[in-house]
Nucleic acid binder design. Structure first.
Length: 423
RNA sequence: GGAGAGAUGGCCGAGUGGUCGAAGGCGCACGCCUGGAAAGUGUGUAUACCUCACAAGGGUAUCGAGGGUUCGAAUCCCUCUCUCUCCGCCA
């Protein structure tokens, strides 16, 4: 959610910036400013009225004590009339506040200057590409066939016990999953991230805090009986740890990491996009989150990108990094890098991480602030990224590393798996 | 799930209708004291919104949340949430 002060002071710049996201904000901004104006007038009126009746109430108290019953009663009548006005103003104020808020949440975050213009994924800027595009032997097959061949993932069993998009990992497949999780968490911890193990369900306030609600509630699994939401990413519980928190500047940057299962309903996809591990309703992911100052946040974004780059190198996967264009960047993000690995048998790039700087877009809604050295309380910047999402990493590992003798496990993982080959 | 107790500022803790944003203590910050430190001592120490120059100053709200009674509520009433204790159930 953008700050109202920003819209008040720089409405032209805001509208201009949002154009990059193909968002025509002019009308909404005008409405927001109108409501804001009304809100402030009403607030002032209410405050003045309350101040008045407060003074009178005190007077009544004094009069009663000194036994001037009649005078007190007279004043009392007067204040009772004021109460109706107060009630009206309070209702009006509440209504204006909620109206302002509901308009404010319609505006997406402003993209950073370095976000390329463009509307479609084709306009994303390829920042770097690294690693050899794997040449596969003739009988190479996509990962879903390898999964069956080596009996390491059972898609059908998952369908039987739950439904499509809930695979069952088995034997070395299961072990490899566990190895990846441990590897990612160890790396993150070494890089200074504090490990958390968060709840997999969150309440409404948390889902709202990171922006899944109100717009995207259809994308989450909702346990209606208890009104809890299955998390679509660990970002939700981890970032919400800091909801309504005021940190000290010396606690920044705060780096957090968490492994979690992630749950996504993701209705409306089909074909090659959802084949095998490409898109699932439940998957595993290690997430990294940073909270930092406005001055440091873009440096933090680069640092996180470097960090994830390091992981992909260690896993010996060919990858590329995209600087997402204005049209492809998410609603809440000011700048996003997507990390994609090349999955050789499918001959396509798979997104395995998305690293974003949200600036104050999340923290404003969450009231996540810090106290500067000068003693001023201001909103922190929040960033997060996957490090990494497992299924597509697994898909690429299986496909790229397949040989006639079996699937080769990257060296860094061997200490975790206890085997260097799946055959 | 049943019974009971409770929720006050960063923490502890007073406050049961009147000037209480809230005593006192601890913690923290700054100053004095000191050769330096401890002790001592002084001052300060919430958040949001409005006014305003995002200053100073001022106003309003906030004592778990929401509603109500009252001229006036941290204090009374109702609803909800959460915490603790005991019992039950249980990995």
């Amino acid at each position: 959610m953008l700050q109202i002060s920003l819209i008040r002071e720089q409405k032209e710049q805001v509208a201009q910036a949002l154009k990059k996201k193909n968002f025509d904000a002019a009308e909404i901004i005008e409405r927001i400013l109108e409501v804001d104006q009304q809100r402030r007038i009403t607030q002032k009126k209410l405050d003045d009225t309350l101040a008045e009746s407060k003074i009178m109430a005190r007077e009544i108290g004094t009069l009663m004590k000194s036994g001037q019953q009649e005078k007190a009663n007279k004043l009392r009548e007067e204040t009772s009339r004021g109460k109706i006005v107060v009630k009206e103003l309070q209702d009006k104020l509440a209504q204006l506040e909620s109206e302002q808020e509901s308009l404010l949440v319609l505006l997406p975050n402003m993209p950073h200057d370095t976000v390329p213009a463009g509307n479609t994924p084709d306009d994303n800027e390829v920042v770097t590409q690294e690693g050899e595009i794997t040449e596969l032997h003739q009988d190479a097959v996509p990962h879903w066939e390898l999964a069956t061949k080596y009996d390491i993932i059972d898609f059908e069993a998952g369908t039987k016990i739950t439904g499509a998009g809930f695979p069952v990992y088995k034997g070395k497949g299961a072990k490899l999953q566990r190895a990846l999780i441990s590897f990612f968490l160890d790396e993150a911890t070494q890089a200074g991230y504090t490990e958390y193990q968060p709840p997999l369900m969150v309440n409404e306030a948390s889902a709202y805090g990171t922006g899944q609600l109100p717009d995207k509630d259809g994308q989450m699994y909702h346990v209606t009986l208890d009104n809890l939401y299955m998390i679509p990413t660990a970002e939700v519980p981890v970032t919400n740890l800091f909801r309504d928190v005021i940190l000290q500047e010396n606690q920044l940057p705060a780096r957090s990491t968490a492994y979690s299962a992630c749950f996504r309903r993701e209705a409306g996809s089909y074909g090659k996009d959802v084949r095998g591990l490409n898109r699932l309703h439940q998957f595993d992911k290690v997430e990294i989150v940073q909270l930092t100052t406005p001055e440091a946040s873009y440096q933090a974004l680069e640092e996180m990108r470097e960090y994830v780059t390091g992981l992909l190198r260690k896993l010996e996967l060919p990858f590329r990094i995209l600087n997402l264009c204005g049209g492809d960047i998410s609603f809440a993000s000011a700048k996003t890098y997507d990390m994609e690995v090349f999955s050789a048998a499918q001959n396509r790039w798979l997104e395995v991480s998305s690293i974003s700087n949200f600036e104050t877009f999340q923290s404003n809604r969450m009231k996540l602030r810090y106290k500067t050295k000068e003693g001023k309380t201001i909103l922190a910047h929040t960033l997060n990224g996957s490090a990494l999402a497992l299924p597509r990493i697994l898909a690429a590992l299986l496909e790229n590393n397949q040989t006639e003798q079996g699937i080769k496990i990257p060296k860094v993982l061997v200490p975790y798996t206890g085997f260097d080959n799946i055959s």
